[in-house]
Write a protein that binds this DNA or RNA. Sequence first.
DNA 1: AGGTTATCTGCAATCGTTCTCAGTAATGAT
DNA 2: ATCATTACTGAGAACGATTGCAGATAACCT
Lengths: 342, 342
Amino acid sequence: MSTVTITDVAKRVGVSVATISRYLSGFTVRNEEKIREAIIELNYRPSAAARNLKSGRTGIVAIVVPDITNPFFASIVEGAEGAVGDDRMILLVNTGDSREREEKALSQLFGRVDGVIMAPLTEDEQGPSFFSQFGLPIVFVDRVTQDGEKFSSVLTDNVKGAQLATDYLIGHGHKKIAMISGPLSTTPGKRRADGYRAALKKANLGDQYFIESDFSEAGGYAAMCSLLERDDAPTAVFTANNLMTIGALHALGDRGISVPEQISIIGFDDLEFAELINPPLTVIARDARLQGSQAMELMIKHLNDGVHTPPEHSMVDVQLVERGSCGAPRESQKVRSNKIGR
Amino acid sequence: MSTVTITDVAKRVGVSVATISRYLSGFTVRNEEKIREAIIELNYRPSAAARNLKSGRTGIVAIVVPDITNPFFASIVEGAEGAVGDDRMILLVNTGDSREREEKALSQLFGRVDGVIMAPLTEDEQGPSFFSQFGLPIVFVDRVTQDGEKFSSVLTDNVKGAQLATDYLIGHGHKKIAMISGPLSTTPGKRRADGYRAALKKANLGDQYFIESDFSEAGGYAAMCSLLERDDAPTAVFTANNLMTIGALHALGDRGISVPEQISIIGFDDLEFAELINPPLTVIARDARLQGSQAMELMIKHLNDGVHTPPEHSMVDVQLVERGSCGAPRESQKVRSNKIGR
DNA sequence: AGGTTATCTGCAATCGTTCTCAGTAATGAT
DNA sequence: ATCATTACTGAGAACGATTGCAGATAACCT
């Protein structure tokens, strides 16, 4: 076990601890060669704890995400990892969509990390008041809290993405366009719903097929089921995230409803395997890794420039990736007959 | 900003810092009520750094994985998160399949964490020698290093899984059974290859269709391409992990080769969307979340019982999930004609 | 009352660094 | 040779908690 301290190294070389410390911090000192050797021979490793205590910094940046098994967040983490650099590490907190765990984690983070990159669970007011007393640099990614403008953020152009998707369905001639939405308490939930409604309005269509759900596969499944049970079922669906798209597809598969012949579907967020699905999935894509790396770069900037750097807001673009899951609408009779026949 | 220390609290209450410290550690002290109040009023938060320095523990467990965007590892992390408990946190390190980053991370981890749960990149000898001098409890998950028996581990029954898969293909009448294997330098790579070969041997078949690749989608794609280019192409393929399965499917899709009519495929590791693929994917599944939680439980045990608890080894079972990607072999002529026609 | 134990307390050392301050040696300019 | 400048050095005080020790108080026996 390595309980060898800076003092041991100093004794070995015959200088003071201050010199060793300076050497470690990159200053030029007289006996560099001997110090290097002594450190290797003694297998000395500086104590992170002692450094933290003195310097006040930990060299750790936290990333708080609601669900690490969602490929989108996994990619964010990957992007952040790539941008974190050599002298910092990442502390991952997965809150599992639990508000309680999010709060607990945040309070425990204090003192252990230099900054927090987070995708908060909701935009509720509780968040900001907590953050203002937090004292650490915060960068929001993908989602913000109510007064998110006060902190740096890297967001997606959700409104545009949802409009693109809805317009695309409208362009195919659909009139009955459903949206399986995420929680309106979240940034992407709200904004994507806004984009959807704006596009419908522009085309003089109503939003009677709007369903609020919860960004999970089960939620997408349930929402799709309830849409299919309607007397006047939609001919196209826009699902607000990847997991809900998968859930919706499972619901369709279970009922033997074929895509895009009987119903068209377009999802927000691309998936590694979107092309492999039958049919290949048309989606609104964005660069999650880029979002992660931008968030980390912003964080590093704040860390280096001091807390009082003004917040910066970055917006990542979206684009429509056309594959094969959307087509022209079918006459509603046909859809109904199929629905009965399930 | 909270620069309020234990001394401030002590002054406020009119006792010594020792008393506050004891109160914080759960001992019964006289003025509990007043202390509680003072802590809240002053918004005092104990300094993690100072605690670390004195006590030597950090309350953080590291998880080192090669690729967090692989759903399998994401699930491991999720499982570990669920089992970590209230007084510890998880530090995630994503090495991105880079040996260099793995080494660097490991050395930086020292002193910042109480233990390391890891899926090492390879079984090379470098690992163990490093770990023996590491002095921290280590739990291997999914993969081990050469002298892995010295440390606790949670592994999968890889041999059995590979045998199940290969036997299944043999049972369908296949004779030309390929394996797109992971690196033989890794635990799952080697063991799954062993299982495949054992099953072939039992059936008096040769392993001329064995290809070693790298557990990535691109690797699976390339391997599948090279198999298809052979004069005598295989009629069935066993891919050694989820990403390579996706890659292989992409390769087949690009060439218009249909599954399972023209070629059968079975993969190791289930996928959230395996049912949605055309055709639904038959796989060898295992409970990744369970592996993660077991690893964490083992770690907590080591942490609580002291370093000198003997290592424990746990093996998670596998099972074959039959869907629709395997069928009877086609005559080789047909396959060849299709190959020419691509 | 006196003695013993149990419970709580404060003092002060300690953990392993960083960093200010003052001091010494070496170099260059005059 | 003198002085100014530069380049490095060591002593020692922090940083904010934990904890062994010994003393004080209260509680319990006989």
